[in-house]
Design a protein around this nucleic acid. Structure first.
Lengths: 140, 140
DNA sequence: TTCATTTGGTTACTTTTTGTAACTTACTCT
DNA sequence: AGAGTAAGTTACAAAAAGTAACCAAATGAA
């Protein structure tokens, strides 16, 4: 791959290499764990599920469905499975009738929700700019 | 909506309210700018496009396509449009033949790429854990 | 002159992913 | 006997994404 130094001035290139050089989003997905892992963790439904489980330490399926407004049973169930497989959340089923299932963040999930919260705060702060821009763009 | 204090012990609830209370991911999408804006900005292709434009300050369509490995013309073109509409990137076309088009981050996009870089570093650090977990889960 | 090449897309068509809504299981309560 | 309940699953429809061919308009080569 061509380096940034070939396209930009050298001073800037050094800074960019320091910021980006060690991060591995630069490979095809099958060779790139970052892309692979991120595509699950930054999915829009995954984000909401994890945020809600950060807010309410324990949630059952139907509560999650209520809070993650708009999600379908099917997708919620799918996402919960992959989030569990990836280690963000845990699932505990109690063999009562009707069955009771509790979802919560793992310790690992807790570290992720902190990152997500930062991202979400950024979105909260900046969404007015984005909406204003979108509006303006629509008129052009 | 029910508050966290009704479900959890009060000490923890205060902390959670402080962290989450002011953030607005709790509404249906049509009422929730955060969900709306985030669904564009945290899309897997959007993330890669923005990261690459953080790394190479100027990129043309076909370079982007090469670097954002696996993206199709169609989706690249769509994403560039919405990212431009939302104010993250700018598009400048030079009426040469064949046409030359330059994409770069806006100042606003620059502030976002910094957030994304943090997220990406987290993914880089933690992807081994996720992959290991996934492996283990597969056996169960 | 005719033909291939170039960039930044678009278009038509196929495949995959999502959304919708009805259904299931197994036990309890009326 | 029939209704209700929690946590899903299933079949079918709709939307999104992937694929690959195509386009314009000029340049350079044959």
């Amino acid at each position: 791959m061509e380096t940034v130094a070939e396209n930009q001035n050298v001073r800037n290139a050094k800074k960019l290499e320091k910021m980006f050089g060690h991060i591995d989003f630069k490979h095809p997905p099958e060779l790139c764990p970052v892309r692979d892992v991120m595509s699950v963790a930054s999915d829009q439904w995954s984000i909401l599920i994890i945020l809600w489980l950060g807010y309410f330490p324990v949630l059952r399926f139907n509560k999650l469905k209520k809070y993650v407004y708009g999600i379908s049973n099917k997708v919620l169930s799918q996402r919960l499975k992959v989030l569990e497989a990836d280690g963000y959340i845990s699932r505990k089923a109690y063999p009562e009738v009707p069955i009771r299932v509790e979802y919560r963040l793992t310790d690992f999930g807790q570290t992720y929700v902190e990152k997500l919260l930062e991202l979400t705060e950024w979105m909260q702060t900046n969404s007015p700019k984005v909406l204003a821009n979108r509006e303006k763009y629509g008129l052009i």
